[in-house]
Design a protein around this nucleic acid. Sequence first.
DNA 1: TCTGGGGTCCTAGGACCC
DNA 2: TCTGGGGTCCTAGGACCC
Length: 425
Amino acid sequence: MALVAPRICCLDLDTFFVSVERLLDPSLQGKPVIVGGFDPERAKDSKRPLRGVVTAASYEVRVYGVRSGMSLTQAQELAPHAIYLPTRHDVYTPYAKQVRELAENYTPLTQVASIDEMFLDFSGCERLYHKPCDDDADATIERVVRQLTDEVQSRIGLPSSAGIATSRSVAKVACGLAKPRGVLLVQGGAERELLAPLPVRKFPGIGPVAERKLNALGLMTLGEVADADATLLRKVFGSTTRAIQRGLLGMGHHELGRERPAFQEYDSFGLTLGSISHEHTFLEDSRDPARVEGLLCSLCERVCWRARGRGVKARTVTLKLRYTDFQTLSRSRTIRPSASEFEVFPVLRQLLQRARTRPLPLRLIGVALSNLGHHDEQLELFDELTQVHQAVDEVRDDHGFDALRVALSKAKSKKPRRTKFARRT
DNA sequence: TCTGGGGTCCTAGGACCC
DNA sequence: TCTGGGGTCCTAGGACCC
């Protein structure tokens, strides 16, 4: 059987959030920097430990064992001297967009996987890029990908790494091995050898739960999983066993978009049409109904505002609760398509009543809109509710979400008689 | 060392319809 | 009236990713 050529490239920005912060403040260069999800202003007043986690850690701070996903409390114990910065998604997004646009000049077949990661398919591009200096077609692709990462650095100022392989999964693993600022090409047929010594967790799709189960079966490395009996593995992976094992042998699908079902639709801002959600963990667990309802209201307004900004309405509303003992539950309901807090909030209140069966304090509240669809604004131009939303959204689009708070907590009917607004000072 | 926030996808049972 | 099977929607929960 002829070997498949490695033409799938995974491009990942190294410590992306930290790199952007350094672009904006060069004095952070070479220093231990941690970007984490917390509000320094609120944290200052709290005597409790911080509740956020590390979103991005510079290589200077990884030396001390700090990793992304780790709690900030733990990070502070390991690296008290590090510089802690809050996560600023809106600041990073334009940089991610620049990288995407640059990468799209290289091949028309690209897929965005996350804010700092994308896949490129170079199938059929070998002759287009070939130069006499290249030993073979693989060398051509490797050289072109190096040129891409160099260009991301020189034009945008961001360090990146890339992995090239015959499938998405292996390209992603290779990219991880290439970091920082590296490019690694895995030749067709060499996949198994590359993966075999790695811990099981390194393969995309194997998370903490599968890792625990595999380790309990005595399987510690990807090589051991590749060799394991499929009947045994079915206890861990169920129906995806065959796909995982084939992937480990380098026999995964050799085109983009096949290893995972089709990607969600992306709008012009690179956002998916799938769902919109917001959740918040209290600085201190609370059972105060006024606080709980106040947060629920604010989360509801946020998701509805974002849905209107995208011109979509939701058919499914979901409430998520996490109790102080970490028990997490969700309650959802199908509604007439809506992006109005005046319609969504009463539903959320009912869901809250239904879900709040334990007297324990709450740790987290979340709100999600899903089953999203585009709606026809023309039909609603003169609708009273639409006009209210337009007025509110105009202020918020100019001055940010927090510029206005809508007094919603008394909203019980679908269309309130009177709407009160309070402008924040 | 108690565990964020924004997502996607998958599974599974029950309701309902044909 | 009884029985069965397939398809689809709704709801809840969970794994995984960055």
